[in-house]
Design a protein around this nucleic acid. Sequence first.
DNA 1: AACTGTGAAGTTTTTCACAGCC
DNA 2: GGCTGTGAAAAACTTCACAGTT
Lengths: 210, 210
Amino acid sequence: MSSKSSADIPDIVIGRLPLYLRSLRHLQDDRRRVTSSHELGERLEISSAQIRKDLSHFGGFGKQGTGYQVEFLIDRLEDVLHVNKEWLVAVVGAGNLGSAISHYRGFQDRGFRIAHLFDIHPAKIGMRLGGFVVLALDCMQATIRKDGVKIAMLAVPAQNAQTVADQLVAAGIKAILNYAPININVPPNVQIQYIDPVAHLQRMTYYLGD
Amino acid sequence: MSSKSSADIPDIVIGRLPLYLRSLRHLQDDRRRVTSSHELGERLEISSAQIRKDLSHFGGFGKQGTGYQVEFLIDRLEDVLHVNKEWLVAVVGAGNLGSAISHYRGFQDRGFRIAHLFDIHPAKIGMRLGGFVVLALDCMQATIRKDGVKIAMLAVPAQNAQTVADQLVAAGIKAILNYAPININVPPNVQIQYIDPVAHLQRMTYYLGD
DNA sequence: AACTGTGAAGTTTTTCACAGCC
DNA sequence: GGCTGTGAAAAACTTCACAGTT
Protein backbone atom coordinates (compact mmCIF):
# COMPACT_ATOMS: atom_id res chain seq x y z
CA MET A 1 0.00 0.00 0.00
CA SER A 2 2.73 2.46 0.88
CA SER A 3 5.40 3.32 -1.67
CA LYS A 4 8.63 1.37 -1.64
CA SER A 5 12.22 2.18 -2.42
CA SER A 6 12.85 2.30 -6.14
CA ALA A 7 15.10 -0.77 -6.19
CA ASP A 8 12.13 -2.98 -5.30
CA ILE A 9 10.11 -2.11 -8.34
CA PRO A 10 10.64 -4.34 -11.37
CA ASP A 11 11.96 -2.57 -14.45
CA ILE A 12 9.20 -4.17 -16.50
CA VAL A 13 6.70 -2.20 -14.41
CA ILE A 14 8.61 1.04 -14.99
CA GLY A 15 8.51 0.34 -18.71
CA ARG A 16 4.71 0.30 -18.68
CA LEU A 17 4.23 3.54 -16.77
CA PRO A 18 4.97 5.77 -19.79
CA LEU A 19 2.26 3.91 -21.71
CA TYR A 20 -0.24 4.52 -18.92
CA LEU A 21 0.75 8.16 -18.88
CA ARG A 22 0.33 8.45 -22.63
CA SER A 23 -3.14 6.90 -22.53
CA LEU A 24 -4.16 9.09 -19.62
CA ARG A 25 -3.21 12.17 -21.61
CA HIS A 26 -5.39 11.05 -24.46
CA LEU A 27 -8.26 10.60 -22.03
CA GLN A 28 -7.57 14.06 -20.71
CA ASP A 29 -7.60 15.49 -24.24
CA ASP A 30 -11.10 13.99 -24.52
CA ARG A 31 -12.10 15.89 -21.34
CA ARG A 32 -12.45 12.71 -19.31
CA ARG A 33 -12.11 13.27 -15.55
CA VAL A 34 -12.20 9.70 -14.28
CA THR A 35 -11.13 6.33 -15.62
CA SER A 36 -10.68 2.76 -14.41
CA SER A 37 -8.10 0.02 -14.65
CA HIS A 38 -10.54 -1.79 -16.90
CA GLU A 39 -10.83 1.10 -19.37
CA LEU A 40 -7.09 1.72 -19.46
CA GLY A 41 -6.51 -1.98 -19.92
CA GLU A 42 -8.83 -2.16 -22.89
CA ARG A 43 -7.08 0.72 -24.61
CA LEU A 44 -3.64 -0.69 -23.98
CA GLU A 45 -4.49 -4.38 -24.29
CA ILE A 46 -3.16 -5.03 -20.81
CA SER A 47 -5.19 -6.77 -18.11
CA SER A 48 -6.87 -4.55 -15.55
CA ALA A 49 -5.29 -6.55 -12.72
CA GLN A 50 -1.87 -5.81 -14.15
CA ILE A 51 -2.53 -2.10 -14.21
CA ARG A 52 -3.86 -2.07 -10.66
CA LYS A 53 -0.88 -4.02 -9.41
CA ASP A 54 1.60 -1.83 -11.25
CA LEU A 55 0.08 1.35 -9.84
CA SER A 56 -0.17 -0.10 -6.34
CA HIS A 57 3.63 -0.23 -6.16
CA PHE A 58 3.60 3.52 -5.74
CA GLY A 59 0.67 3.98 -3.41
CA GLY A 60 -3.09 3.92 -3.57
CA PHE A 61 -3.88 6.25 -6.44
CA GLY A 62 -7.45 5.07 -7.02
CA LYS A 63 -10.73 5.03 -5.15
CA GLN A 64 -12.71 1.86 -4.63
CA GLY A 65 -16.02 2.02 -6.40
CA THR A 66 -14.93 5.07 -8.40
CA GLY A 67 -11.67 4.42 -10.24
CA TYR A 68 -8.82 6.84 -10.90
CA GLN A 69 -8.98 10.62 -11.28
CA VAL A 70 -7.28 11.23 -14.62
CA GLU A 71 -5.51 14.43 -13.68
CA PHE A 72 -4.41 13.15 -10.29
CA LEU A 73 -3.01 9.94 -11.76
CA ILE A 74 -1.15 11.89 -14.46
CA ASP A 75 0.45 14.03 -11.77
CA ARG A 76 1.43 11.01 -9.70
CA LEU A 77 2.95 9.17 -12.67
CA GLU A 78 4.85 12.29 -13.70
CA ASP A 79 6.25 12.44 -10.18
CA VAL A 80 7.25 8.79 -10.22
CA LEU A 81 8.92 9.06 -13.63
CA HIS A 82 10.50 12.44 -12.78
CA VAL A 83 8.92 14.12 -15.77
CA ASN A 84 7.21 16.76 -13.64
CA LYS A 85 10.02 19.01 -14.80
CA GLU A 86 11.65 19.68 -18.15
CA TRP A 87 14.75 17.70 -19.06
CA LEU A 88 17.30 19.09 -21.46
CA VAL A 89 18.38 16.69 -24.19
CA ALA A 90 21.36 16.79 -26.53
CA VAL A 91 21.01 15.34 -30.02
CA VAL A 92 24.18 14.02 -31.63
CA GLY A 93 24.13 13.57 -35.40
CA ALA A 94 22.49 16.04 -37.75
CA GLY A 95 21.81 13.67 -40.64
CA ASN A 96 18.32 12.73 -41.73
CA LEU A 97 17.49 11.15 -38.42
CA GLY A 98 18.97 13.88 -36.24
CA SER A 99 17.14 16.38 -38.39
CA ALA A 100 13.81 14.56 -37.97
CA ILE A 101 14.37 14.38 -34.21
CA SER A 102 15.13 18.09 -34.06
CA HIS A 103 11.96 18.96 -35.94
CA TYR A 104 9.69 16.66 -33.92
CA ARG A 105 7.25 18.61 -31.73
CA GLY A 106 6.31 15.67 -29.53
CA PHE A 107 9.19 15.80 -27.04
CA GLN A 108 8.31 19.17 -25.58
CA ASP A 109 4.89 18.37 -24.14
CA ARG A 110 6.08 15.13 -22.59
CA GLY A 111 8.91 16.53 -20.53
CA PHE A 112 11.89 16.88 -22.84
CA ARG A 113 13.42 19.92 -24.49
CA ILE A 114 16.14 19.62 -27.08
CA ALA A 115 18.98 21.87 -25.99
CA HIS A 116 21.66 21.25 -28.60
CA LEU A 117 22.32 19.54 -31.88
CA PHE A 118 25.86 18.37 -32.65
CA ASP A 119 27.55 17.02 -35.75
CA ILE A 120 31.07 16.28 -36.83
CA HIS A 121 30.83 17.37 -40.48
CA PRO A 122 32.22 20.86 -41.11
CA ALA A 123 29.67 21.40 -43.89
CA LYS A 124 26.79 21.01 -41.43
CA ILE A 125 28.16 23.11 -38.61
CA GLY A 126 26.37 26.43 -38.36
CA MET A 127 23.35 25.24 -40.34
CA ARG A 128 19.90 25.81 -38.86
CA LEU A 129 17.84 22.64 -38.38
CA GLY A 130 14.49 22.56 -36.59
CA GLY A 131 15.31 25.79 -34.80
CA PHE A 132 18.79 24.73 -33.72
CA VAL A 133 22.17 25.75 -34.98
CA VAL A 134 24.31 22.68 -35.58
CA LEU A 135 27.30 22.77 -33.25
CA ALA A 136 30.68 21.13 -33.74
CA LEU A 137 31.38 17.84 -31.99
CA ASP A 138 34.50 19.52 -30.62
CA CYS A 139 32.46 21.72 -28.31
CA MET A 140 30.07 18.93 -27.33
CA GLN A 141 31.62 17.97 -24.02
CA ALA A 142 32.11 21.53 -22.84
CA THR A 143 28.58 22.53 -23.83
CA ILE A 144 26.92 19.53 -22.20
CA ARG A 145 28.86 20.06 -19.02
CA LYS A 146 28.18 23.78 -18.94
CA ASP A 147 24.41 23.33 -19.30
CA GLY A 148 24.20 20.25 -17.08
CA VAL A 149 22.54 18.17 -19.79
CA LYS A 150 21.96 14.61 -18.54
CA ILE A 151 20.23 12.96 -21.53
CA ALA A 152 21.43 12.42 -25.10
CA MET A 153 19.92 10.95 -28.23
CA LEU A 154 22.48 9.27 -30.40
CA ALA A 155 21.79 9.47 -34.14
CA VAL A 156 25.23 8.85 -35.61
CA PRO A 157 26.37 5.97 -37.85
CA ALA A 158 26.81 2.63 -36.03
CA GLN A 159 30.57 2.71 -36.50
CA ASN A 160 30.91 5.94 -34.51
CA ALA A 161 28.30 5.21 -31.85
CA GLN A 162 30.59 3.74 -29.18
CA THR A 163 33.16 6.52 -29.47
CA VAL A 164 30.55 9.25 -29.25
CA ALA A 165 28.82 7.46 -26.35
CA ASP A 166 32.11 7.39 -24.46
CA GLN A 167 32.48 11.13 -24.97
CA LEU A 168 28.92 11.71 -23.79
CA VAL A 169 29.49 9.68 -20.64
CA ALA A 170 32.73 11.57 -20.00
CA ALA A 171 30.79 14.82 -20.31
CA GLY A 172 28.34 13.76 -17.59
CA ILE A 173 25.47 12.31 -19.64
CA LYS A 174 23.49 9.80 -17.55
CA ALA A 175 20.99 8.47 -20.10
CA ILE A 176 21.42 7.65 -23.79
CA LEU A 177 18.73 6.83 -26.30
CA ASN A 178 20.64 5.06 -29.03
CA TYR A 179 19.22 5.05 -32.56
CA ALA A 180 22.30 3.37 -34.04
CA PRO A 181 21.72 -0.34 -34.70
CA ILE A 182 24.55 -1.52 -32.49
CA ASN A 183 25.03 -2.42 -28.86
CA ILE A 184 26.97 0.03 -26.79
CA ASN A 185 28.80 -0.35 -23.50
CA VAL A 186 28.22 2.22 -20.82
CA PRO A 187 29.03 2.23 -17.10
CA PRO A 188 26.34 0.74 -14.86
CA ASN A 189 25.28 4.15 -13.55
CA VAL A 190 24.37 5.30 -17.07
CA GLN A 191 21.00 4.34 -18.55
CA ILE A 192 20.74 3.16 -22.12
CA GLN A 193 17.78 2.37 -24.34
CA TYR A 194 17.69 1.30 -27.96
CA ILE A 195 15.51 2.16 -30.92
CA ASP A 196 15.92 -0.23 -33.82
CA PRO A 197 13.00 -0.23 -36.26
CA VAL A 198 14.43 -3.18 -38.19
CA ALA A 199 14.40 -5.35 -35.06
CA HIS A 200 10.67 -4.62 -34.73
CA LEU A 201 10.08 -5.43 -38.39
CA GLN A 202 11.95 -8.71 -38.10
CA ARG A 203 9.96 -9.64 -35.03
CA MET A 204 6.79 -9.20 -37.06
CA THR A 205 7.96 -11.08 -40.16
CA TYR A 206 8.46 -14.14 -37.98
CA TYR A 207 4.68 -14.31 -37.66
CA LEU A 208 3.97 -13.43 -41.28
CA GLY A 209 5.47 -16.64 -42.63
CA ASP A 210 6.99 -16.79 -46.12
CA MET B 1 16.34 -30.63 -29.99
CA SER B 2 14.14 -30.69 -33.08
CA SER B 3 12.30 -27.55 -34.13
CA LYS B 4 8.77 -27.03 -32.93
CA SER B 5 5.67 -25.44 -34.37
CA SER B 6 5.80 -21.66 -34.15
CA ALA B 7 2.98 -21.37 -31.64
CA ASP B 8 5.15 -23.03 -28.97
CA ILE B 9 7.87 -20.44 -29.03
CA PRO B 10 7.45 -17.54 -26.63
CA ASP B 11 7.20 -14.12 -28.24
CA ILE B 12 9.87 -12.85 -25.89
CA VAL B 13 12.29 -15.28 -27.53
CA ILE B 14 11.33 -14.07 -31.00
CA GLY B 15 11.98 -10.53 -29.85
CA ARG B 16 15.59 -11.38 -29.03
CA LEU B 17 16.42 -13.10 -32.31
CA PRO B 18 16.81 -9.85 -34.27
CA LEU B 19 19.35 -8.71 -31.68
CA TYR B 20 21.32 -11.92 -32.07
CA LEU B 21 21.20 -11.49 -35.83
CA ARG B 22 22.41 -7.92 -35.59
CA SER B 23 25.34 -8.86 -33.38
CA LEU B 24 26.25 -11.76 -35.63
CA ARG B 25 26.42 -9.42 -38.58
CA HIS B 26 28.83 -7.18 -36.71
CA LEU B 27 30.98 -10.20 -35.94
CA GLN B 28 30.86 -11.09 -39.62
CA ASP B 29 31.90 -7.56 -40.58
CA ASP B 30 34.94 -8.14 -38.37
CA ARG B 31 35.71 -11.31 -40.35
CA ARG B 32 34.93 -13.59 -37.42
CA ARG B 33 33.98 -17.13 -38.48
CA VAL B 34 33.02 -18.65 -35.15
CA THR B 35 31.49 -17.35 -31.95
CA SER B 36 30.00 -18.67 -28.70
CA SER B 37 26.96 -18.08 -26.55
CA HIS B 38 29.32 -16.53 -24.04
CA GLU B 39 30.73 -13.99 -26.50
CA LEU B 40 27.32 -13.07 -27.87
CA GLY B 41 26.01 -12.76 -24.35
CA GLU B 42 28.76 -10.37 -23.35
CA ARG B 43 28.10 -8.12 -26.32
CA LEU B 44 24.36 -8.09 -25.74
CA GLU B 45 24.39 -8.23 -21.94
CA ILE B 46 22.28 -11.37 -21.98
CA SER B 47 23.29 -14.55 -20.16
CA SER B 48 24.91 -17.26 -22.26
CA ALA B 49 22.39 -19.82 -20.99
CA GLN B 50 19.58 -17.64 -22.25
CA ILE B 51 21.08 -17.47 -25.71
CA ARG B 52 21.64 -21.21 -25.86
CA LYS B 53 18.11 -21.93 -24.76
CA ASP B 54 16.61 -19.43 -27.20
CA LEU B 55 18.52 -20.92 -30.12
CA SER B 56 17.76 -24.49 -29.07
CA HIS B 57 14.07 -23.86 -29.76
CA PHE B 58 14.88 -24.00 -33.46
CA GLY B 59 17.35 -26.87 -33.54
CA GLY B 60 20.94 -27.52 -32.67
CA PHE B 61 22.80 -24.75 -34.43
CA GLY B 62 26.05 -25.03 -32.47
CA LYS B 63 28.83 -27.55 -31.97
CA GLN B 64 29.90 -28.68 -28.52
CA GLY B 65 33.42 -27.61 -27.77
CA THR B 66 33.45 -25.24 -30.74
CA GLY B 67 30.53 -22.81 -30.59
CA TYR B 68 28.48 -21.42 -33.46
CA GLN B 69 29.57 -20.82 -37.07
CA VAL B 70 28.73 -17.15 -37.61
CA GLU B 71 27.59 -17.46 -41.21
CA PHE B 72 25.59 -20.61 -40.59
CA LEU B 73 23.81 -19.10 -37.61
CA ILE B 74 23.00 -15.93 -39.56
CA ASP B 75 21.43 -18.05 -42.29
CA ARG B 76 19.41 -20.07 -39.81
CA LEU B 77 18.12 -16.98 -37.98
CA GLU B 78 17.22 -15.35 -41.28
CA ASP B 79 15.23 -18.46 -42.14
CA VAL B 80 13.46 -18.46 -38.79
CA LEU B 81 12.58 -14.76 -39.00
CA HIS B 82 11.68 -14.99 -42.69
CA VAL B 83 14.14 -12.31 -43.67
CA ASN B 84 15.95 -14.57 -46.14
CA LYS B 85 13.99 -12.67 -48.77
CA GLU B 86 13.27 -8.99 -49.36
CA TRP B 87 10.04 -7.58 -47.95
CA LEU B 88 8.39 -4.57 -49.54
CA VAL B 89 7.37 -1.84 -47.11
CA ALA B 90 5.01 1.10 -47.55
CA VAL B 91 5.72 4.32 -45.65
CA VAL B 92 2.72 6.49 -44.83
CA GLY B 93 3.42 10.12 -43.95
CA ALA B 94 6.02 12.22 -45.73
CA GLY B 95 6.72 14.70 -42.94
CA ASN B 96 10.05 14.92 -41.19
CA LEU B 97 9.83 11.39 -39.89
CA GLY B 98 8.60 9.81 -43.09
CA SER B 99 11.34 11.67 -44.89
CA ALA B 100 14.02 10.40 -42.50
CA ILE B 101 12.70 6.85 -42.88
CA SER B 102 12.78 7.14 -46.66
CA HIS B 103 16.37 8.33 -46.64
CA TYR B 104 17.61 5.71 -44.19
CA ARG B 105 19.93 3.17 -45.84
CA GLY B 106 19.72 0.61 -43.05
CA PHE B 107 16.50 -1.16 -44.04
CA GLN B 108 17.80 -2.55 -47.31
CA ASP B 109 20.60 -4.76 -46.01
CA ARG B 110 18.43 -6.23 -43.28
CA GLY B 111 15.63 -7.51 -45.46
CA PHE B 112 13.33 -4.57 -46.14
CA ARG B 113 12.89 -2.42 -49.22
CA ILE B 114 10.75 0.68 -49.17
CA ALA B 115 8.33 0.41 -52.06
CA HIS B 116 6.15 3.50 -51.71
CA LEU B 117 5.79 6.71 -49.79
CA PHE B 118 2.31 8.16 -49.28
CA ASP B 119 1.01 11.46 -47.94
CA ILE B 120 -2.31 13.23 -47.82
CA HIS B 121 -1.09 16.80 -48.39
CA PRO B 122 -1.52 17.98 -52.00
CA ALA B 123 1.60 20.15 -51.68
CA LYS B 124 3.77 17.10 -51.01
CA ILE B 125 2.36 14.79 -53.65
CA GLY B 126 4.78 14.40 -56.54
CA MET B 127 7.80 15.59 -54.54
CA ARG B 128 10.91 13.41 -54.57
CA LEU B 129 12.06 12.26 -51.12
CA GLY B 130 14.87 9.78 -50.57
CA GLY B 131 14.47 8.44 -54.08
CA PHE B 132 10.69 8.07 -53.88
CA VAL B 133 7.94 10.13 -55.43
CA VAL B 134 5.34 10.97 -52.80
CA LEU B 135 2.03 9.36 -53.78
CA ALA B 136 -1.45 10.48 -52.82
CA LEU B 137 -3.21 8.70 -49.97
CA ASP B 138 -6.08 8.18 -52.40
CA CYS B 139 -4.10 5.64 -54.40
CA MET B 140 -2.64 3.95 -51.31
CA GLN B 141 -5.01 1.02 -51.07
CA ALA B 142 -4.91 0.23 -54.77
CA THR B 143 -1.11 0.48 -54.92
CA ILE B 144 -0.55 -1.68 -51.83
CA ARG B 145 -2.92 -4.31 -53.13
CA LYS B 146 -1.45 -4.27 -56.62
CA ASP B 147 2.12 -4.79 -55.37
CA GLY B 148 1.18 -7.21 -52.59
CA VAL B 149 2.85 -5.09 -49.91
CA LYS B 150 2.35 -6.68 -46.48
CA ILE B 151 4.22 -4.29 -44.18
CA ALA B 152 3.68 -0.59 -43.47
CA MET B 153 5.43 2.03 -41.38
CA LEU B 154 3.03 4.59 -40.00
CA ALA B 155 4.48 8.08 -39.63
CA VAL B 156 1.37 10.25 -39.55
CA PRO B 157 0.08 12.47 -36.71
CA ALA B 158 -1.45 10.57 -33.78
CA GLN B 159 -4.92 11.86 -34.55
CA ASN B 160 -4.91 10.22 -37.99
CA ALA B 161 -3.13 7.02 -37.07
CA GLN B 162 -6.17 4.82 -36.41
CA THR B 163 -7.94 5.86 -39.61
CA VAL B 164 -4.89 5.25 -41.76
CA ALA B 165 -4.22 1.94 -40.00
CA ASP B 166 -7.76 0.82 -40.82
CA GLN B 167 -7.17 1.66 -44.49
CA LEU B 168 -3.88 -0.24 -44.45
CA VAL B 169 -5.51 -3.31 -42.98
CA ALA B 170 -8.31 -3.11 -45.54
CA ALA B 171 -5.66 -3.00 -48.27
CA GLY B 172 -4.12 -6.25 -47.07
CA ILE B 173 -1.29 -5.00 -44.83
CA LYS B 174 -0.38 -7.65 -42.24
CA ALA B 175 2.22 -5.82 -40.13
CA ILE B 176 2.35 -2.20 -38.99
CA LEU B 177 5.24 -0.41 -37.36
CA ASN B 178 3.56 2.55 -35.70
CA TYR B 179 5.63 5.66 -34.99
CA ALA B 180 2.62 7.68 -33.80
CA PRO B 181 2.48 7.93 -30.00
CA ILE B 182 -0.94 6.34 -29.68
CA ASN B 183 -2.33 2.85 -29.32
CA ILE B 184 -4.04 1.44 -32.35
CA ASN B 185 -6.54 -1.39 -32.74
CA VAL B 186 -5.94 -3.93 -35.44
CA PRO B 187 -7.46 -7.38 -36.05
CA PRO B 188 -5.69 -10.26 -34.32
CA ASN B 189 -4.17 -11.54 -37.56
CA VAL B 190 -2.34 -8.23 -38.08
CA GLN B 191 0.97 -7.62 -36.29
CA ILE B 192 1.65 -4.29 -34.66
CA GLN B 193 4.75 -2.84 -33.05
CA TYR B 194 5.32 0.59 -31.57
CA ILE B 195 8.18 3.05 -31.61
CA ASP B 196 7.87 5.79 -29.03
CA PRO B 197 11.14 7.53 -28.17
CA VAL B 198 9.53 9.50 -25.36
CA ALA B 199 8.44 6.30 -23.61
CA HIS B 200 12.09 5.20 -23.61
CA LEU B 201 13.22 8.56 -22.28
CA GLN B 202 10.65 8.46 -19.49
CA ARG B 203 11.72 4.97 -18.56
CA MET B 204 15.25 6.27 -18.10
CA THR B 205 14.35 9.40 -16.15
CA TYR B 206 12.77 7.17 -13.53
CA TYR B 207 16.27 6.00 -12.65
CA LEU B 208 17.86 9.44 -12.94
CA GLY B 209 16.00 10.84 -9.96
CA ASP B 210 15.28 14.57 -9.67
C1' DA C 1 -23.19 -1.84 -8.09
C1' DA C 2 -18.71 -0.61 -9.27
C1' DC C 3 -14.19 -0.51 -8.50
C1' DT C 4 -9.51 -0.75 -6.06
C1' DG C 5 -5.73 -3.10 -3.73
C1' DT C 6 -3.68 -7.40 -2.73
C1' DG C 7 -2.48 -12.06 -0.96
C1' DA C 8 -2.43 -16.52 -3.10
C1' DA C 9 -2.22 -19.34 -7.14
C1' DG C 10 -0.74 -20.06 -11.55
C1' DT C 11 2.22 -19.31 -15.42
C1' DT C 12 6.22 -17.85 -17.77
C1' DT C 13 10.94 -16.86 -17.99
C1' DT C 14 15.58 -17.23 -16.46
C1' DT C 15 19.34 -19.43 -14.35
C1' DC C 16 21.72 -23.41 -12.74
C1' DA C 17 24.45 -27.19 -13.39
C1' DC C 18 25.97 -30.97 -15.75
C1' DA C 19 25.99 -34.91 -19.25
C1' DG C 20 27.75 -35.35 -23.63
C1' DC C 21 30.68 -34.07 -27.40
C1' DC C 22 34.67 -31.84 -30.01
C1' DG D 1 39.58 -27.57 -21.79
C1' DG D 2 35.89 -25.53 -23.92
C1' DC D 3 31.51 -25.50 -25.48
C1' DT D 4 26.48 -26.82 -26.46
C1' DG D 5 21.88 -28.42 -25.28
C1' DT D 6 18.74 -29.30 -21.68
C1' DG D 7 16.21 -31.09 -17.66
C1' DA D 8 15.46 -29.32 -13.06
C1' DA D 9 15.31 -25.51 -9.88
C1' DA D 10 14.69 -20.83 -9.02
C1' DA D 11 13.00 -16.40 -9.88
C1' DA D 12 10.01 -13.23 -11.98
C1' DC D 13 5.76 -12.00 -13.63
C1' DT D 14 0.72 -12.27 -14.38
C1' DT D 15 -3.81 -13.57 -13.23
C1' DC D 16 -7.27 -14.89 -10.02
C1' DA D 17 -10.55 -13.90 -6.85
C1' DC D 18 -12.28 -11.51 -3.17
C1' DA D 19 -12.33 -8.44 1.08
C1' DG D 20 -13.04 -3.84 1.64
C1' DT D 21 -14.54 0.84 0.26
C1' DT D 22 -17.32 4.40 -2.06
